[in-house]
Design a protein around this nucleic acid. Sequence first.
DNA 1: AAGTGGTCTAGACCACGTT
DNA 2: ACGTGGTCTAGACCACTTT
Lengths: 262, 262
Amino acid sequence: MAAIPSGVLGALDSTSDRAVFRQIADQLREAIDKGRFKEGAKLPSESELVEHYGVSRMTVRNALSVLQGEGLVHSEHGKGVFVRPRPPVRRLASDRFARRHRDQGKAAFTVEAEAAGSHPEVDSLEVKEERPTQDVSARLGGPRRVLARRRRYLLDGRPVEFATSYLPLDIARGTPIAEPNPGPGGIYARLEELGHRLDHFEEEIRARMPTPGEVKFLRLAAGVPVIHLIRTAFDTEGRPVEVCDTVMAADAYVLAYQLPAT
Amino acid sequence: MAAIPSGVLGALDSTSDRAVFRQIADQLREAIDKGRFKEGAKLPSESELVEHYGVSRMTVRNALSVLQGEGLVHSEHGKGVFVRPRPPVRRLASDRFARRHRDQGKAAFTVEAEAAGSHPEVDSLEVKEERPTQDVSARLGGPRRVLARRRRYLLDGRPVEFATSYLPLDIARGTPIAEPNPGPGGIYARLEELGHRLDHFEEEIRARMPTPGEVKFLRLAAGVPVIHLIRTAFDTEGRPVEVCDTVMAADAYVLAYQLPAT
DNA sequence: AAGTGGTCTAGACCACGTT
DNA sequence: ACGTGGTCTAGACCACTTT
């Protein structure tokens, strides 16, 4: 067991009334912030920290779990605890649904990811008719049944987003929208071909900790929240024609919007 | 010590390879989801859970800390562990900076909160000149010094948001913008009076776990992320005239935007 | 085989809140 | 005084990864 290089971590202040595990967490956090442990670097092992600070292992683990909760580090069984690297971030611009981005043969996600040098994938596509939740139904004007399109997006093998689109059956049934692959330009292009010219979108954004199911499906590290985005698309007659419910790994996204000053 | 009512929590599955503390967390989570423990209700005490499941106290605490990390429960020293109630949510609409909302004598936050029946407060106002971070400087076109306006917003005594506005000195120095109270309509009204008619805003949104400082300042419960919003205001000549850096308690906000389909 | 983190036990003492 | 959660110890055994 290697000793911890001197100067990297300090000593405990026994006169302080701050809990020992918090002091240890503070020192590790500071060392990370100051770059003494760089992104992806391995922290001292639990037993090294036990020896360095002269405390029990549970106290050290308590300190490390604080940092995990903050999203600063992640642990790998049998390997160690590492400073969590920041994954590449996907920027969603407010013009991402502009008609001009809809002309290509590929989905917007694919085009954009390849432009950024990433390898995009879409999986777990499910298309079925179902009964909407009360919230989705209300947003769509009260239909009793809807078409649901579910898919998961991955960048370079990492799942980053899980989305479900809901459309009223009277619009979507029997159209390419009900097919797994709706064709070039996606369902928005199909909606316009069906006479529902899109007028605007409304988006609602929340952030929260993920459910255990979301942790699994998005392979989220500890301390990573999700962004929950609900978008409603309106046609030029003011009718809501689609609700898209999206859960995103918060460390993989930055959302950008432009607001008028008028 | 009261026994736990039968039927509320099940028994452990010793044949499962799922860790015991996870099984306990699963059962408590399910009981909360199904409403067997309602918002604000007290969970069984640690010693009750110890007795019910026949495990050690650390195992029970481990289970409870899982739920805390998910933001489902919070603990109060000496009192118990409670299902975390959802605080009232503040909805930020995309027209919140429209000129028509700027005519009143009060700040937008105050007007809106009172309309919603809440008691708004603004505190810890600090106005000073300082050297901007590299990021803020770049967004403002590269000034070496800026005016910084810091304030914290509270609703019904609870801090919900902490914001700092940065403005180039050549615009703000010696104007009402550099005063603690910039007057009716806020700094955007003053900017327009100074000849910087506002054209549009750009907002960037991220979500992450809070730093220890943010936890303290916003009195955040465990398992509550923050929404980090950076807004840049542009005048009609295309010049960035303000950058506002805002950290919000994620459980107190929903952001709403409207996007054009063009 | 050796080192790492993951789980669990059975205690102990303390600080906080209520009765 | 008593029940609550907060902190800490000193072990134990296990599962995973690397040597």
